[in-house]
Each structure stands twice: as C-alpha cells, then as structure tokens.
C-alpha cells in the first residue's frame, strides 16, 4: 500500500461500553504513549470515558462489556446498524467474561440479590458476549483487553488488512519464554486451553493462568478437566475453575 499521501478523510471510530467495569476503556487511555499516533490515522467520534460527542455512522465501532439487559440488546443493534466494522474489546464483550457467572444461577435469584425489592424496575438477561446478538468482525481478548493486540487489530484495520486472529494457547508463549511449567511446581494452570496473546504474563510471574482470555477454538475441555483432576483437583473444583471466565458457554459445555 502507498502511504505517501494521507487519506483525505480519516476513518471515524467510536468506543461503546456495555456491562463491564470499564477497565478496558481505561486501559485504552493507558495507550497515551501512542495516542497522538493513533489520532493521526483516525478521528474518535464517540468515547464516553473521555469525551461526549456523538456521531451517526462509524467506520469502526469498538464495543466493551457484555450484553445483559433488554436495553443493551437494543443499543447494540443500533450500533451495529451504524458501524461498518464492529470489534469486541476485552473478555466481557468477547466471551461474556466473569459477568456470565450469573448465568449459573436462576436469573430471578440474581435479580433479587442485586436489586432487592426494586428488582421489577431493572429487567435483566443472562450475560452474553456481543457476538450472541450481532455479528462481530474482530475480537480483542483479555481482562482487561490487551493493548498490543488492540494495536495489531487497529493497524490492520486502518491499513485495510485482515488482522491475524490468534488461536494458540498460553502454553505456546510459555515455551517460547522457556518458562518452567507451573505443573512442575505442583500448581494447576488453565494455560493449555486458554487463548494466548498475553505473552503468558501470569505463568511468567509464577501465577497460574485463570483463563481470562477465553478458550482456544475447539478447546478439548474434557481433556483439560482430566488434567486438572489428575493433578489433584476434585471434578467440581476443576469445573469451577474452567467456568470462571467461560460461563457463557455453560449450557452446552459441561452438561
């Protein structure tokens, strides 16, 4: 591609947040080292965490958070209609994240616990990834979302290329770093079926992987459960570990 002449109009990008801690958006503000360079390529037209402009159409819409209320559903449809490319940011948006743990209990109990007697004012749904409602073009994993991965996707989209979708597990990054496997230190770790891209940051610092980036495609969950139980966890405890970040898939995953 030629970059000698800058495009006349910059792509318009927008950020939206749904059910989440907004940590991912804040993490983007941590991009400040790169922010000026980013703004050379795009105009940010909507970003509640940092500004309050609104726009009608977006070249790229970045979505943070999971879908968990009827109004979320309406809003995400509306954004999808106005966005050429839609990118899910961070675990909540990509997999439902830890929000989806609420799906493990009857929804009315959850509603009551959170809102008490006012629960009828607050309709709620099982927590869902964005892709459960609308078509998602690209996903950026991590809790919070990974900045390097955000930049890879961002650059590819601005250049009009397809970003490479990572699909190998955390163990790969551990091996590239020549880490001692935590299983050899008597720990258990979800790295074997968790999507890489974090540079195996947790195992590299002696902390087992809790699976925050979600599962690799076609993860062999039964084999993972066998590994966990062979290393001393009860089946119940093993399932609980797997569900922490992967509850959304619960109905067809373990039963």
């Amino acid at each position: 591609m030629s970059t000698q002449t800058a495009p006349k109009t910059k792509p318009q990008i927008a950020f939206f947040d749904f059910t989440s801690c907004e940590g991912c958006q804040l993490n983007k503000l941590n991009l400040e080292n790169h922010l000026l360079e980013i703004l050379e390529h795009v105009d940010i037209v909507e970003f509640r965490e940092a500004m309050d402009d609104k726009a009608d159409a977006y070249d790229i819409a970045f979505i943070e958070g999971s879908i968990s209320t009827p109004s979320c559903v309406e809003r995400i449809h509306d954004i999808r209609r106005r966005a050429k490319i839609l990118v899910a940011l961070g675990s909540c948006a990509v997999t439902g994240g830890i929000n989806a743990m609420k799906n493990l209990q009857p929804i009315e109990d959850v509603r009551e616990t959170v809102y008490g007697k006012d629960k009828y004012l607050f309709p709620t749904l099982p927590a869902m990834p964005v892709s459960a409602i609308v078509k998602v073009d690209y996903e950026i994993h991590g809790c919070p979302m990974s900045i390097p991965e955000f930049l890879v996707v961002f650059k590819a989209l601005v250049m009009g290329k397809q970003p490479i979708k990572p699909d190998s597990p955390v163990c790969v990054e551990c091996k590239l770093r020549e880490n001692e496997c935590l299983y050899d230190r008597g720990m258990v770790c979800l790295g074997p079926i968790t999507l890489s891209g974090c540079d195996a940051i947790c195992p590299s610092f002696g902390q087992f992987c809790t699976g925050c980036r979600g599962l690799v495609p076609d993860a062999n969950k039964n084999a993972m459960l066998d590994i966990l139980t062979d290393h001393g966890l009860s089946l119940q405890e093993a399932e609980k570990r797997l569900l922490l970040f992967n509850s959304y898939k619960q109905p067809d995953t373990f039963k």
Binding site: H34, K155, M159, I164, C171, K175, P192
Partner: peptide, 30 residues
C-alpha cells in the same frame, strides 16, 4: 486425541522440531 489438549508443547520442546511461522509487523506510523 481424546486426552490431548493440542497445546503444542510436545513440538515446542522437541530438539528436532524446526517449524516456524512468519509474521509481518508494522509500526504505528504505518
């Protein structure tokens, strides 16, 4: 295959494995 998680460890630690992948990366200035 029923017991394997496909993590690639067996390849990545093997002294006679030599496969690699190549990626092009651009800086933020593009």
């Amino acid at each position: 295959a029923q017991r394997c998680v496909g993590c690639g460890t067996c390849n990545l630690v093997c002294p006679t494995c030599y496969c690699f992948n190549m990626v092009d990366n651009v800086d933020l200035k593009l």
